[in-house]
């Protein structure tokens, strides 16, 4: 195998204007009495060129959803469509190619390989695929995200905010269909967190990128276009043009025992 496979397009499509779509998604862990249903028939549409937050209490299934969406985990049943591709139908090699070519990742922490410089980390996906990154696009990104003078540094020589910005550059460099962010501000102080959110916002507004972010933080969610709420592994509503206040209200309703608050 000289070249890793390229992600194959499949006939099923998520729908016009949709970046991704979950249809009746079920994910179970364990067997017998220890069986846990992390996703219990979740159906969600993620609109293109929008910034979407996924929220919910611990155990609501938001992390599992994110894993399925990012091709890191496979649903037990149901469909997880990324553009025109049903991720559940792909083998490991094809999923790897999807992650490399069509997805970008920003995690809470530990986004960068500690022994590679920031620049090398940025080029990692392209290097793994055996091709060269788009130089002009790369230059634009590193300048726009303010890490141009940090490319020769090791992650340990960068601040937490700088590390996350490098991770965002890496995520955007391949012009992915979708950028998946898992609590990206979780390990940052409030100032650096706000700066990072503004950057993600700009990615959507200026570069037309689709971003999905899992978060606990209502202030972070307030930066997005839309909040998708999960509860017990199912969709529990959406908040359009969220504010900190509307998000807190809806979360409060969700947290109340069924039948009382709603």
């Amino acid at each position: 195998m000289s070249q890793p496979p390229v992600a194959p397009p499949l006939p099923t499509v998520a729908g016009p204007g949709l970046a991704a779509r979950a249809v009746d998604l079920v994910r179970e862990y364990g067997t017998g009495s220890s069986r846990v249903r992390a996703l219990d028939g979740l159906s969600v549409d993620l609109v293109e060129r929008r910034f979407t937050a996924v929220m919910g209490a611990s155990g609501s299934g938001k992390s599992t959803f994110l894993h399925c969406l990012a091709g890191l985990d496979r649903a037990t049943s149901g469909q997880m469509l990324l553009g025109g591709t049903d991720l559940g139908a792909l083998d490991d090699a094809a999923l790897t190619a999807i992650r490399r070519d069509r997805l970008g990742f920003v995690f809470q922490d530990g986004n960068l390989l500690p022994h590679l410089t920031a620049g090398e980390n940025i080029d990692l996906a392209a290097s793994l695929a055996g091709r060269r990154a788009d130089r002009a696009w790369r230059r634009e990104l590193v300048e726009r995200l303010g890490v141009a003078d940090r490319l020769r540094h090791l992650p340990s020589q960068l601040s937490g905010g700088q590390r996350q910005r490098v991770a965002v550059v890496r995520a955007l460099l391949g012009r992915p269909d979708l950028v998946v962010a898992d609590e990206p501000t979780g390990a940052l102080d409030s100032e650096a967190g706000a700066a990072l959110l503004a950057l993600l916002r700009a990615c959507v507004d200026e570069f037309g990128q689709t971003v999905v972010m899992v978060t606990h933080d209502p202030s972070a969610a307030a930066v997005t276009d839309e909040v998708v709420l999960l509860r017990d592994g199912r969709a529990a509503g959406r908040v359009d043009r969220p504010t900190r206040r509307t998000v807190l209200e809806r979360l409060g309703e969700l947290a109340a025992p069924a039948g009382v608050g709603a």
């Binding site: 490991d92 790897t96 992650r99 990742f105 995690f107 530990g110």
Partner: peptide
């Protein structure tokens, strides 16, 4: 992380 950003097994 390598696997996440697209390294094959």
């Amino acid at each position: 992380l390598l696997r996440c950003v697209g390294a094959t097994g």
